[in-house]
Every structure is written in structure tokens, then in C-alpha cells.
């Protein structure tokens, strides 16, 4: 249960750069009406960020190439099916984690 002054400064720095992007839109949107094209653009952000994060987890750098990570790819199939069928966050996470555990158990 210890820490150092340097670590506290590092944590404070990380906290600040994380906090500002989170709160500034909430303060700024109050006074400024965003133009229509920006609002339409923002509608695409959720699906874009989420799909980008899904793909980013699946791709892996191998030497000079970027390849699809086998474990992530095969774990994604049952995970995706359960997500489509159940539309449930918790069931999807359980099946995802279990699939990954089983894949590692049998193929590692």
C-alpha cells in the first residue's frame, strides 16, 4: 500500500488529460448550437468507434504485417451470434470470456 510523489504526479497528469475531453463538450454545447452537418456526423460516431475497437482487438502486428489474431477471430464468432440473438450485454460477455478460455484451453 505505497506510492511515490512521481507516481502521484503521473496519475494527476493522466487524470487531467482524461477529464478535459470528457467535460469540455458538456460546458461548450450549452452556449453554442452545433451546425446540422456536425450533428449528422456525430450520429455515426458510436458505430464507428465501437466497430473500430472491435477490429483493433482482432488485428495484431506480426513482424511487418498486420494479421487477424486467430483466438480473437474465433472467439468473436460465438460472441457475435449471442449478441445478435440475445441483444444482452451480460450474456455476450459471459459467452465471449468462456469462448476465449476454451480456445486457450484446447489450442494453447
Amino acid at each position: 500500500m505505497t506510492t511515490t510523489v512521481n507516481m502521484l504526479l503521473l496519475l494527476a497528469g493522466c487524470a487531467l488529460v482524461t477529464w478535459l475531453p470528457r467535460i469540455l463538450p458538456f460546458l461548450f454545447v450549452k452556449s453554442v448550437e452545433l451546425p446540422d452537418v456536425v450533428l449528422r456526423w456525430l450520429k455515426y460516431i458510436p458505430i464507428c468507434i465501437l466497430s473500430a475497437l472491435v477490429f483493433e482487438g482482432m488485428f495484431e502486428e506480426k513482424g511487418k504485417l498486420v494479421v487477424i489474431d486467430g483466438y480473437h477471430f474465433f472467439a468473436a464468432i460465438p460472441t457475435l451470434l449471442v449478441a445478435v440473438w440475445t441483444k444482452s450485454l451480460s450474456k455476450t460477455v459471459i459467452v465471449g470470456v468462456a469462448s476465449m478460455a476454451l480456445l486457450r484451453l484446447f489450442f494453447e
Binding site: V54, H72, A83, L89, V93, G96, S99, M100
Partner: peptide, 25 residues
Amino acid sequence: AESWGLDYALAAMFIALLILSLASS
């Protein structure tokens, strides 16, 4: 933790959220 598949929870959550936002569009 890796052998328990726990590291995959984050990716599975992103997949579920993506499907949910697709389903509600």
C-alpha cells in the same frame, strides 16, 4: 488472468455494444 479468458471481456463488451446500437438504428 489470460488463461481464464478474462482479458476478452473488453472485446466481447464492444461487440455487444456495437450490435445493440445497430439493432436500435
